[in-house]
Simulated assay, not measured.
Amino acid sequence: MPLPSADELEQLEEIEKQWAVKAMHHAETYYNLLECVECTKLPLTRIDDELYADFKDNFPHINVEKLDEEWFKTPEAKEKWRNFITKYEKKVNDYNFGSLLRKDYRLGYTEENTMFAMRTQFYCIEIARNKLGLNKIVYKGTS
């Protein structure tokens, strides 16, 4: 396979920058919501309950309090998630878009506390955190 031309590389770099801006905007918007809406009352999708139940059934070992990023990178985890995510292609908007996910729910989006995830993974983890009340730590309430 031939190497991409300089023009193609510039286009790929631009696409990557656009993805990063969109992913960061999504993360900032979500975190701002957590600050002003009590997490147990914050729906993320129209099928939160279905996603949460399916996630718990398929990934009971995942500790949503502090994610093991290395596990997510294993071939087994990637395959299992790929099969899981595909089921939601028609049910979850942007189901396979890249998203930023906090590894430790107690911390914000920092370079050390952020990992790449697919949008459906993001929803599963954050829906679980919200239902368990973990994200209350971010909530500032009304002033």
Rank of each mutant, 00 (worst) to 15 (best):
K22L: 07
K91G: 06
L33W: 06
E65N: 14
N96K: 12
F97T: 04
E35M: 15
K90M: 14
T86Y: 14
Y95D: 02
R129Y: 07
K41T: 12
A128Q: 11
R102V: 11
Y95G: 06
R82F: 11
V21I: 15
D54W: 00
E76S: 12
E38L: 10
T74S: 15
L42I: 04
Y52T: 00
R106G: 00
N63R: 09
V92S: 10
D54E: 15
E16M: 04
P43D: 05
E28M: 10
N63D: 15
H61M: 12
E76Q: 14
W71Q: 15
D48H: 12
A77T: 12
D48C: 14
E111T: 10
F97Q: 02
C39W: 05
T86R: 13
G98E: 01
E70F: 09
K103Y: 00
T120F: 02
I127Q: 06
E35K: 15
R119L: 01
L33C: 05
L51V: 10
A77F: 14
Q121F: 03
K56L: 15
L101S: 01
K78Y: 08
K73G: 05
L101I: 08
T40Q: 14
M24P: 00
D54A: 13
L51A: 04
T45S: 15
A27Y: 01
N96M: 11
Y95E: 05
I127W: 07
E70N: 14
Q121R: 04
P43W: 09
N113G: 09
Y123N: 08
E89T: 14
T110C: 02
